[in-house]
Design a protein around this nucleic acid. Structure first.
Length: 430
RNA sequence: GGAGAGGUGGCCGAGUCGGCCGAAGGCAGCCGCCUGCUAAGCGGUUAUACGGUCAAAAGCCGUAUCCAGGGUUCGAAUCCCUGCCUCUCCGCCA
């Protein structure tokens, strides 16, 4: 959510900043509704002030035993008027909010222009794609041939986009998660947090998932209470809403949190896309990174967050590149962001495995998280950042594809072996 | 699932028959004084949001906030209703 004051005071600047991202056309409407809102506030509050003074006088008069019925009758009318105005104001407030939450974040000046991911800018590359002396297969072929990935059983148990993982694949997934958490907590200074995977609508709202993205979420009904809880599509939801409503001290920032969680996504509107393998599933696991920082710190924190995610791939010796997202690919809340893309041998190209974003104060304002500046003064909104560090399923894909051998087996990356009980090679299951 | 208790400022806690309650008192915090040091003592001070005023900030004025939403009333922390949350005991349970 943008600051209404910024829109009010510099509407042209905001419109210009949003020209490429969209939402500029909302600004004029917002100004109109905001003006109406302020007129109503003035009117109601003046009336309330009148009422408060009169009520005090009435109380005083009554205590003296004087008759105040004339004044009371007058105030009855004022009270009715106040009630009517309060109703109007509520409507206008809702309208103003409704418009304001539709305005996307303003991109940081350093963000490259562009319309789609095709315009993203490569920042750096790491690792050389290894040369294989055979034709590399996609992970689903590698995994299914070994009996480790089992889409048929996933569909039988649930529906499409669910895949059962057997033996070595299941073990490797668990090892990956453990490895990533240890790395981030021991070497990168993140605090590991266990969070609810089912959250209320209010939490989804604060995390920016509702009302816009409801069609992407799985809902559950608590039968006894008839209440809706949502399955989280990412631990970011719980982590970024963790401190909502709180005022933190500047000294405590930046806060660096990590959480391992399952993620549930309906993937509505992606029919037919990525149907093979486990690239796009309804349920997957992810180690998430979230930071709360001052806006001034946040751009450095974004760089270090990307570096933290990159370290995972470096330790696994998986070639990747980092691209900076252009304005059109930033997403609704992003002020600046990077994607990390991992090498896919059979495709001979890089595909996304992590996405790190700085939402700046836009995220803090929506989640209602402030900090009190060290030098004193009014609380300010924190900047929120998030990134995947990394998605377990997609990392497993990268391992299966990059470590596949001519005989169909898959070597286990050295860094993972201690976490996989010394397992060195994935071989056929049964 | 059964029975009961309760939600007040950073924390503890008082609020009488509804008015003078943004809310006593204490603690913690901040500023100053005092004091060989420490401890104690003395005085002052300490919420947030929104609106108005102002070139802007400060300040000032106003409105709202005693879990949330409704209601009664000229007026509600205080009365009524609904919801949410917390706690205690019993039962069940990984």
């Amino acid at each position: 959510m943008l600051d209404i004051k910024l829109i009010r005071e510099q509407p042209e600047a905001v419109e210009r900043a949003l020209a490429q991202k969209g939402g500029a056309e909302l600004i004029k409407q917002i100004l109109e509704v905001d003006g109406e809102r302020r007129r109503l506030i003035k009117e109601t509050e003046d009336l309330k002030a009148l009422r408060n003074r009169a009520s005090e006088a009435i109380g005083l008069a009554k205590r003296k035993g004087e008759d105040a019925s004339a004044e009371m009758a007058k105030m009855r009318e004022v009270a009715d008027r106040v009630k009517a105005l309060d109703g109007e104001l509520k409507t206008v407030d809702e309208r103003a909010d409704e418009l304001l939450v539709q305005v996307p974040n303003i991109p940081h000046p350093s963000v490259p222009p562009g319309k789609s991911d095709a315009d993203n800018v490569e920042v750096r590359k790491w690792g050389a794609p290894r040369r294989l002396d055979f034709t590399p297969k996609p992970h689903e072929d590698v995994g299914e041939a070994l009996g480790l990935l089992d889409p048929e059983r996933g569909v039988k148990l649930a529906k499409s986009r669910f895949t059962v993982m057997w033996a070595g694949a299941a073990r490797l997934a668990r090892a990956l998660a453990q490895f990533m958490l240890d790395l981030h907590t021991r070497e990168h200074g993140y605090t590991e947090i266990w969070i609810p995977n089912l959250v209320s609508g209010a939490t989804m709202l604060r995390a920016g998932q509702l009302p816009k993205f409801e069609e992407g979420l799985f809902k559950t009904i608590d039968a006894d209470e008839g209440r809706t809880l949502y399955l989280i599509p990412t631990a970011e939801v719980s982590l970024s809403a963790l401190h909502s409503g709180e005022t933190l001290s500047e000294a405590s920032l930046p806060l660096r949190y990590t959480a391992f969680s399952p993620c549930y996504r309906r993937e509505a509107g992606t029919y037919g896309k990525d149907m093979k393998g486990i690239y796009r599933q309804h349920q997957f696991e992810k180690v998430e990174l979230v930071k709360l920082a001052t806006p001034a710190q946040s751009y450095d924190e974004l760089e270090s967050m990307v570096a933290n995610a990159e370290t995972v791939l470096q330790r696994l010796n998986l070639p990747y590149r980092v691209v900076e997202r252009c304005i059109g690919d930033l997403g609704f809340s992003g002020a600046k962001g990077y994607d990390i893309e991992v090498w896919r041998p059979h495709m001979e190209k890089y595909t996304e495995i992590s996405s790190c974003s700085n939402y700046d104060a836009f995220g803090g304002r929506r989640a209602d998280i402030r900090y009190r500046p060290a030098g004193g003064g009014r609380p300010e909104f924190v900047a929120t950042l998030n990134g995947s560090g990394l998605a377990v399923g997609r990392t497993l894909i990268a391992v299966l594809e990059n470590y596949q051998q001519a005989d169909g087996t898959v070597m286990v990356p050295e860094a993972l072996r201690p976490y996989a009980g010394g397992l060195e090679r994935l071989t056929a299951h049964r």
